[in-house]
Each structure stands twice: as structure tokens, then as C-alpha cells.
Amino acid sequence: EDGINLEEIREFAKNFKIRRLSLGLTQTQVGQALTATEGPAYSQSAICRFEKLDITPKSAQKLKPVLEKWLNEAELRNQEGQQNLMEFVG
């Protein structure tokens, strides 16, 4: 629908959760960090719904690039050390 690749979103949601957990981050931490930079659309409950795919494809499509960018950045910081990650997450 609307050129939205559901399979891709499903895959990303699954990987997002795995990668988030491997960084040792909670949904709350991700939500707080993103709410600070991106606004309330990225709250803990939004992250939770995204991971469960309990949102419309359109919403998922909107969240995905922001979550992807944030997660990549978080992983980079983590490679530089846990301290850097925690500063990034705030």
C-alpha cells in the first residue's frame, strides 16, 4: 500500500529490537533520547508499538528512517565506548 514495503519494515522492527537490546538500552531510554531530539512522536510507547508492529504502515514508514539513523549513531558511539553511548542517550 502506498509503495510501503511491509516486509522491509517487519525485518527492520525485528532487527531494531535485537540491536537495541545488544546495546543494553531500554525502550524508555530510546524514547527519551528521541523525544528530546525529534519530539513526542518518538516516545517509549511509540518505540514499543513500532517493535510490535502495532502501528499503521504509514506511521512505521515515518518512524523507520529516524530510528535507523539514531540506532546507527548509537552503535557508532558504543564502539567508541560505553561512556560515549550513555552521553549520546543522555
Rank of each mutant, 00 (worst) to 15 (best):
Q32I: 05
G81E: 08
E87V: 01
F50E: 07
L23S: 05
I55H: 05
K17H: 10
L6G: 07
F50T: 02
S43T: 08
V30F: 05
E11C: 06
S43K: 09
E7F: 02
A33Y: 12
G3E: 15
F50L: 10
Q79S: 13
E7S: 06
G90L: 07
Q83D: 15
V89H: 14
F16L: 05
F16M: 00
P65E: 10
K64A: 08
P57S: 07
Q83C: 09
E73R: 08
N72Q: 13
K58E: 15
Q44S: 14
K52E: 14
L71F: 03
G39V: 02
K58C: 09
R77L: 09
F50Y: 10
L25P: 01
E11N: 13
I4F: 14
S59Y: 08
A33F: 10
T35Y: 07
A60T: 01
A33L: 07
S43D: 15
P65T: 08
R10P: 03
Q44M: 13
N84H: 12
A46F: 06
F12D: 02
N5S: 11
C48K: 15
T28L: 14
Q61C: 11
E87C: 04
L25F: 08
S43V: 02
E51A: 01
I18S: 15
F12C: 05
A60C: 02
G81P: 03
V66C: 04
E80P: 10
K58Y: 09
T28K: 15
R19P: 01
M86G: 14
D54Y: 13
G3M: 15
K14N: 05
Q29S: 04
I55W: 02
I47E: 01
K64W: 07
A46R: 04
L34Y: 00
L71S: 05
T28V: 11
L76F: 08
I18Y: 06
Q32E: 14
A74L: 05
K62R: 11
E38V: 10
D2I: 13
A46Q: 11
Q27F: 04
P57W: 07
T37S: 12
I47V: 07
L25H: 03
S22P: 01
A74D: 01
W70Y: 00
E87S: 11
L67Y: 09
I47L: 05
S45F: 10
E80L: 13
R19Y: 00
S22K: 15
I9L: 10
T35P: 02
L76K: 15
T37E: 10
P57H: 08
S45L: 08
R20C: 08
I9Q: 06
G39I: 06
N78Y: 13
A60M: 07
Q82G: 12
T26S: 11
K58G: 11
G90H: 09
T37G: 04
I47H: 02
R19H: 02
S43F: 06
R19S: 03
E87N: 14
E8Q: 10
R20A: 03
P40R: 11
E38K: 09
F88S: 13
R49I: 03
Q79T: 10
G3Q: 15
L63S: 05
A13W: 03
Q27N: 06
P57T: 09
N5Q: 10
Q82N: 11
Y42R: 05
N78V: 10
M86Q: 12
E11L: 09
F88V: 11
L23K: 00
E8C: 02
R19L: 00
L63K: 01
E1K: 11
A36G: 06
D2N: 15
R10A: 12
L21R: 13
R49S: 14
D54R: 06
L63H: 08
E68F: 04
E75Q: 04
I4K: 11
L53D: 05
L63Y: 07
L6M: 14
K58T: 14
N78M: 13
V89R: 12
I47R: 02
L34N: 00
I4A: 04
L63I: 06
R77D: 07
